[in-house]
């Protein structure tokens, strides 16, 4: 064990861990939302993320930018980021909607057992990932360097760069917006109603299918933004990266309390830093061990996660 390595790099391990955690958290939202409403683990959500990440890169390619391009000027950087964000969110939301229409809705109409949903989800996930694999010839695709990773300033000697600010900032803004949407808006009340008791909600005039569609669109958009942030940070994308990232995000959702939006944020950030601390302390080969051991231990003591399941609970 390398305590020296952990303590001397503690600040940097924390900031980079939080950045990665923010991406986990955004993807985790999709799992949590769908679970909260349908009590269904949408395993195909990892491919919703991948769709956004690929479409963001393809958007930049369409503008003539590849992995060797350097973009300068704040105006054009913001322009490229915003355009790619919109495209990625649309691509991901569309993918999520298609999955819901093709894979889940017909099963729901026929009252299929939960196992059927699970297998369909895994099937859809593999099919979509493979389709991207074939389309990209299983080669990595590179993103242009849009946001520099040179330190902008230091907090207690820990360098902070623009990518970190952008990732964590964007994740927080999206989270707060989604939280307000669910808790304050009329549609949000519908979502909470369906999550609590779908049949009663229907009797009260809530259109269940429409609500479910909105949930998939909202979760998909978050995953699309996560895909964009992933591209900005990692700058390279392979068709197969969704699987493990999806699994981590799902872990984050469970850690925080699945069905609970704020739990997704807490779980994601916690997972990100724990992975980095373990990498610093034991070596990077222990990263995934630490992440999943944390999940097992935490669920032993708090089976519903850190903040508990709350989307379905009665509230105002």
């Amino acid at each position: 064990m390398n305590f020296d390595g952990l303590f001397s790099n503690f600040g940097e391990l924390t900031t980079t861990g939080l950045t990665q955690g923010a991406i986990y958290a955004l993807v985790a939202l999709g799992y949590t939302l769908v679970y909260g409403v349908l009590k269904l683990i949408n395993f195909a959500h990892s491919e919703v993320f991948i769709a956004g990440a690929f479409f963001a890169i393809w958007t930049w390619n369409w503008f003539g930018l590849d992995q060797n391009s350097q973009v300068s000027g704040a105006g054009s950087i913001i322009f490229y980021l915003l355009v790619a964000m919109v495209v990625a969110a649309i691509a991901s939301a569309t993918t999520a909607t298609v999955i819901e229409r093709v894979a889940y809705r017909p099963l729901r109409k026929r009252n299929a057992p939960p196992l059927a949903f699970l297998i369909t989800a895994i099937g859809a996930s593999i099919a979509i990932a493979e389709a991207f694999g074939i389309w990209t010839r299983r080669r990595p695709e590179g993103a242009p360097i849009l946001v520099g990773q040179e330190p902008l300033f230091r907090i207690f000697g820990v360098p902070i760069d623009a990518v970190q600010l952008l990732t964590i900032g964007a994740a927080l803004v999206m989270m707060i917006a989604l939280d307000m949407f669910i808790n304050r808006s009329r549609v949000g009340r519908g979502i909470r109603a369906v999550a609590q008791d779908a049949n009663t909600a229907a009797l009260m005039g809530v259109n269940k299918d429409r609500i479910i569609m909105i949930v998939f669109i909202a979760g998909g958009s978050m995953a699309g933004v996560a895909g964009l942030l992933y591209d900005v940070r990692i700058q390279t994308l392979t068709y197969s990266v969704g699987f493990l990232l999806g699994l981590k995000a799902f872990t984050a959702a469970v850690l925080g309390g699945i069905g609970n939006l704020r739990g997704a944020l807490v779980g994601g950030l916690l997972l990100g830093v724990v992975e980095n601390y373990a990498s610093g302390l034991f070596g990077t080969q222990w990263k995934d061990f630490a992440a999943f051991a944390l999940l097992v231990v935490l669920l032993m003591f708090r089976p519903t996660g850190l903040l508990g399941e709350s989307l379905g609970r009665a509230r105002a």
């Binding site: 790099n9 391990l13 980079t16 390279t236 990266v241 990498s279 990077t284």
Partner: peptide, 9 residues
């Protein structure tokens, strides 16, 4: 693994 921030640090 695609995220190597701990190694980089």
């Amino acid at each position: 693994q695609v995220e190597f921030s701990a190694v980089v640090t």
